[in-house]
Design a protein around this nucleic acid. Structure first.
Lengths: 242, 242
DNA sequence: CGGACTGTTGATTCGAATCAAAACCGGTGG
DNA sequence: CCACCGGTTTTGATTCGAATCAACAGTCCG
């Protein structure tokens, strides 16, 4: 039994999709290979052709691309329950890296098994397709973030998005969350320099909007942060919205 | 018969997907409502809940978001044969605007008809899912573009991407393409100011890398532009890559 | 002809990058 | 237990790419 693995996935899927009992059983029957990885390990690399998808059960992963002159841009952060390389089911070649941010518990699901599941359970296929579309919606918002927002607003937007997504899978505690991320990585998420990340975080602390000690981010003034960031949660599509 | 409409779609779909005769016939049987729109018209607005998808047969459209303080970011440009709001099939609420850049010929396809098509023709469902995944891959590259590349490299990258995508649907002529876009809109694509767009274009012209008169972009030195942009075409997934 | 975009140019400002150097922190090994 | 090390965070000085401000020319069109 791979209980903890499918549980994470089902928590995520049922949070914003409608699945019936048979759908859930079919998901629970998926053959999943369990594996643990340390922090900062490449799970799948740019250019590879994986034959399985990676379900994140515990920890954080990110996707990133590196430009020819060595600059890195982080494209997305992933929270437990997500399948960060689900696109590989239909796009054979990876166009970016998938990397662990923290130590992770992962479940690998063969493409074949997923394809069969999609064929037999149209509901599940729709739900998975939908997850990739939400993924894309988040990419869109990140384009706006790096393209049009000030460094401070970017940081605020990033943190609020993360808070909301973690909240949806029950990983927040009284207005805060645990995220072991360095300022270098934050810089690569936001498209700014690490020195500037440091200064922006200081500003936000000075304003009393948040605290950060170790990996613990605490958003003291969520409303104000959202206002500063111009945050509109629509793009997260967190409700089944039928 | 809506021949020109489905032709554009099929050109696009078969360029990077494998469909059989029955798939194609099923697509041709889709009920499509034809409509023409002038340039700069909103097709679907942020917040709406459309009941149909929009197939672009002729012209250009773009997707955009506007921040609370009025800055606009263009998220994607679309070429004939694409369905720029295909995500609305599974995400009920629009999280951005879909707008015509030029006068357009559009075909509107009811969600119901598409859902039925997906149920009956799994191949087509896969192909459409794949198109939304390529969409997402392009978003990822745009994040890198605005996050980590200089203004000049951004412009070069943008133009090369467009060239390749237009080439795939047969809309280029001897190293150039027709794109009636203003510098204001280019600025919103690249996350820079319009003044800077002007200067960047001048630089590229001065270097002899391209010419622009009216709407006609001519990439004189594609290789050099690609080098300048650090362009790697993998993310476009233009081959069925089985 | 007048008006509204659009494109161009120059002067100035500003946000953020870069450069450089400390301070800090957790681990490792002597 | 402490010296040391690499990675991380912090601070300050300086530079730079791009934004902003402002004005003007070009084009299209009613």
């Amino acid at each position: 039994m791979m209980a903890p693995l499918t549980t994470a996935l089902l928590t995520k899927l049922t949070a914003s999709n409608v699945l019936d009992g048979e759908d859930i059983q079919a998901i629970q029957r998926l053959p999943i290979r369990f594996r643990e990885l340390d922090a900062r390990q490449i799970i799948v690399a740019d250019g590879e052709r994986p034959a399985e998808c990676c379900l994140l059960a515990e920890g954080f992963t990110f996707r990133s691309k590196t430009t020819f002159d060595g600059l890195r841009q982080i494209l997305s952060l992933h929270v437990p329950g997500e399948i960060p390389d689900l696109q590989s089911l239909h796009l054979k070649v990876m166009d970016h890296d998938l990397v662990t941010l923290t130590p992770c518990e992962l479940g690998f699901i063969p493409h074949d098994a997923l394809r069969q599941l999609n064929r037999e359970r149209p509901n599940v296929a729709s739900a998975l397709w939908r997850e990739t579309l939400i993924d894309a919606a988040i990419f869109r918002e990140w384009i706006v973030n790096v393209g049009r927002r000030s460094a401070t607003a970017r940081m605020a937007h990033f943190l609020i998005e993360l808070f909301r997504r973690l909240e949806a899978v029950g990983r927040t505690r009284d207005g805060g969350f645990e995220l072991p991320i360095t300022q270098v990585e934050l810089a690569d998420c936001l498209g700014i320099s690490t020195v500037h990340v440091n200064r922006v975080l200081q500003d936000l602390r000075k304003e009393g909007l948040l605290t950060v000690n170790r990996a613990n981010f605490h958003l003291l003034e969520r409303k104000k942060l959202e206002q500063l960031a111009g945050f509109d949660p629509t793009y997260l599509h967190q409700h089944p919205d039928l």
